Simulated scan of single mutants.
Amino acid sequence: MPRLLPLAAITLALAGCSFRSTPDPDLSAQDAAWMAMVPQAEFDPHFARYLVDDPTGAAPGTVVVETRERQLYFVLPDRKAVRYGVTVGDEAFGWTGSARVFRKASWPDWNPPAEMVRRWPHVHPMKGGPANPLGARALYLADGGGRDTLYRIHGTNEPERIGQAASSGCIRMRNIDVVDLFNRVPVDAPVIVR
């Protein structure tokens, strides 16, 4: 009987942690073809997309990025959220605060900011496509005054970096995950990065 107590305790503890995977979004032929051209990487299941109990306390429709956890949550009604693994800004470029989605784009062109070009002269503007660092989708963020923050939530051509602090401040997601988020999040949705 004493051996059953630890098993019972583990079972009760896990019962409070409710999560399950969610189906992939439907993809266009172009999405499927271009995503197949992005090199695939080993993927830690901890950073997969799951439907979870909402740990954020934010209002439904809010995007919450927990930078220390390397997780992004899209808050749903009924105290649920969709959780995605992300890459966040490295220590020198990370940021926190509130924003709003002011624009959404599919396979967006990339125009690196002047500050990034000064740091890395080899970067240059690039048309949307599988080699583009913004990946399959981008959500453009504005501050409280409506000004472009130059930060984005976007896909990636480096899926092996999901779960790391490796970006220049943007929030990167696997392409299949950013398509899922893109389909859920309307323009003007609130975003909290903490």
Rank of each mutant, 00 (worst) to 15 (best):
W34C: 11
D109V: 08
L72Q: 08
L14P: 14
W107A: 06
D148E: 03
A13K: 14
Y50L: 13
G146I: 06
W120Q: 07
Y50F: 15
P55A: 08
P186I: 01
L150R: 01
A48W: 14
V63A: 05
D148K: 05
P121G: 01
A8R: 07
Q30S: 15
G94C: 12
T56N: 09
L12S: 14
R20I: 08
P130E: 03
T149R: 01
A41Y: 14
R137N: 00
A189D: 01
P112A: 05
W95V: 10
K104C: 04
D26N: 12
S28Q: 13
R184M: 05
D109W: 10
M126I: 05
W110V: 06
V82Y: 13
R194T: 11
V191I: 12
L139G: 02
V38H: 13
D26L: 10
K80M: 09
E91S: 15
N175F: 02
A13R: 12
A105P: 11
L4D: 03
Y84V: 12
R152M: 05
Q164A: 07
P77W: 00
Y140P: 09
G129Q: 06
D24I: 05
P121Q: 00
I192A: 08
D180M: 02
A41E: 10
A29P: 14
G163M: 02
A33G: 12
S168R: 05
M116L: 03
E160W: 00
A166V: 03
L14I: 10
Y73V: 09
S106R: 08
R137H: 03
A105D: 12
Q40N: 13
T67K: 15
D26P: 15
G155L: 01
T87P: 10
V178H: 00
F182A: 04
L141P: 07
A114K: 07
G89N: 10
M35H: 14
G61N: 04
W120Y: 09
R184I: 01
V63N: 05
D44Q: 10
L5K: 12
R194L: 12
A59W: 09
A32Q: 13
P77T: 00
V191W: 12
H154T: 01
V191D: 08
G169A: 02
L5C: 08
L27I: 14
I162T: 00
N157H: 04
E91Q: 13
R137E: 00
A81D: 07
C17Q: 14
R20L: 11
P2A: 05
F102W: 10
D188Q: 04
V65C: 11
N175M: 00
L12H: 09
F182H: 07
Q164Y: 04
T149L: 04
